[in-house]
């Protein structure tokens, strides 16, 4: 394996897909964040914590520009990070993935990871716009969220490995096994402790936008890494050898 080439194309694919994710969020998620932060500001004025002065708004605008530009940067960082995981899993599983080219293989894997590490955890612990979360419970919520993703991800790997021990019905064993396993985990895991006080329609719209954003990332990472893999074949050994 061409180690350096492999790392480089994985990181570039992740960064690109993350940039797309950031751009999509900038277009469809930011309007919701502007709204909610507007409400937060009104609450600050009402409670007397802040005064509705021009100075406040100057500071506020600067702060929002910083946060919005961060959306892009954070998209690239997060994309590179998740892309690194995707690259590891793709390299390890490529030979067992269906598809006659690397784009198809990468898209299949992206679909599996999207479903098991995003969709299912999202159904249990959906994204929330600002103000919904209680800062007191953030550590607990982070632990729950990460644990669920980790359990789901390792669940898939576990059932896949298990299925390789059976000769027949190899495809059904991991799917049914994982389905039962994750359903149990889904109901056993504690609920998000926070109560939603914001209007539920609005929260749901935010969740749809968030869902579309993350989905755009998984589609992109599959296409981009698959394309680069087809083009550069980092798994093939060069004929040169070093002694």
């Amino acid at each position: 394996m061409k180690t350096f080439l492999f790392i480089v194309i994985v990181l570039i694919s992740g960064a690109f897909a993350g940039l797309i994710h950031g751009t999509v969020n900038f277009a469809i998620v930011e309007p919701y964040l502007d709204q909610v932060i507007g409400i937060e500001n009104q609450n600050l004025f009402a409670s007397g914590e802040e005064k509705d002065t021009p100075e406040f708004w100057v500071e506020y605008e600067g702060y929002r520009i910083w946060q919005k530009s961060g959306q892009m940067l954070a998209g690239v960082i997060l994309g590179t990070s998740i892309g690194a995981l995707f690259g590891i899993v793709f390299a390890l599983s490529r030979n067992s993935l269906p598809g006659n080219n690397d784009v198809k293989k990468a898209l299949v894997l992206a679909g599996i990871m999207w479903f098991t590490m995003f969709v299912i955890p999202f159904l249990k612990y959906p994204a929330n716009p600002p103000t919904v979360g209680d800062p007191e419970t953030v550590v607990l919520r982070s632990i729950l969220y990460l644990s669920f993703i980790t359990i789901s991800g390792f669940g898939v790997v576990g059932f896949y490995k298990l299925s390789q021990k059976f000769q027949n019905k190899r495809k059904l064993v991991p799917i049914i096994g994982y389905g039962i396993f994750i359903s149990v985990v889904f109901f056993v895991m504690p609920e998000n402790p926070d109560e939603i006080t914001a209007p539920i329609d609005w929260v749901n719209e935010f969740r749809i936008m968030s869902f579309l954003g993350v989905t755009s990332f998984w589609v992109s990472i599959g296409v981009i890494l698959g394309f680069f893999w087809n083009r550069f074949s980092p798994n093939k050994e060069t004929t040169q050898s070093y002694n």
Binding site: Q71, A74, P126, P130, V138, M209
Partner: peptide, 16 residues
């Protein structure tokens, strides 16, 4: 935190 804050919410990570 401020810089990555919006993405944190948008990507579904627990926050405020």
């Amino acid at each position: 935190h401020e810089l990555t804050h919006d993405m944190r919410h948008a990507a579904g990570f627990p926050c405020h």
